[in-house]
Design a protein around this nucleic acid. Sequence first.
DNA 1: CTGACATCTGAGCGACTGCTCATACGTTCA
DNA 2: TGAACGTATGAGCAGTCGCTCAGATGTCAG
Lengths: 147, 147
Amino acid sequence: MSSRSDVRARTKASARTAAAAGPAEACDVFHIDPSRVAGLRGALITPSSVDALAEIFRALGDPTRVRVLDALSHGELCVCDLAQLIDLSQSATSHQLRLLRALRLVRSRRAGRMVFYTLDDRHIVTLFRQGLRHVEEAAVRPRRRLA
Amino acid sequence: MSSRSDVRARTKASARTAAAAGPAEACDVFHIDPSRVAGLRGALITPSSVDALAEIFRALGDPTRVRVLDALSHGELCVCDLAQLIDLSQSATSHQLRLLRALRLVRSRRAGRMVFYTLDDRHIVTLFRQGLRHVEEAAVRPRRRLA
DNA sequence: CTGACATCTGAGCGACTGCTCATACGTTCA
DNA sequence: TGAACGTATGAGCAGTCGCTCAGATGTCAG
């Protein structure tokens, strides 16, 4: 995952080679205080953390998976019940569960023919609540359009 | 956003019409206690909240945007400096900022020819920290492969 | 006004995503 | 053992994403 952003672009990366020329006013260097820039560079999240962060958030960034995790947050469910509860095909549900399981967000337990799934991460619910708080607050002030 | 999941699928939705046939053992109904199912249905997040939640998490679910927001979490930056800081083309940076602005995650301020961006949501940093906590914890136990 | 600069925007391309369909796998029961 | 059931998986398709490229827009200086 996130492999594309590693392979691509870098078109403007060469512009950075001209840096460290002092607090110039041109944009081929930095506009802000160079010392602050240095501080910023060091303060940024490490690349591996960036990718890991994006990975979990991406997992939560799909309506279907939000429904799955929300349903499981109320307790264990078998695939079939879960699928019906969120009105999704069994196959699609299974595919999503596999993805979530690979990310260690859910855990499976076999019981006869059925497989039960549970949340495998206590942070998820916290993230959900925090996200909901954002949503509820943002609902007050209407969003701008893109175009 | 999330328009696709509204338009698509629903292939198995008809299976639900056979529900409410009692606590059967077959999977065309629910396996679990019907009363609990009823409770679950009511406890689930509303569709609009689901979409809204997925929307913010999706915004955070991209390495580039994580970098943008992380950089801005340390203070105001103009587009050019931001682009250099995260090693992204000016155009790509601008596109991402537009998206984040539409979602009210960042705010812009014009100063002459330059435009400065700031975080517009105090929850974002909280979400980041929470996400990082998850990442750091998950780093201990290795992930399973998909195939 | 004109040129330079910073930023914004639309079009378009390749990669990725989430679903369906068909089918394989694993378990239970007769 | 074989049929039925619940679940998992691979292929494939339509839609989406993030980037680049080219050019438009807005601001300032001469």
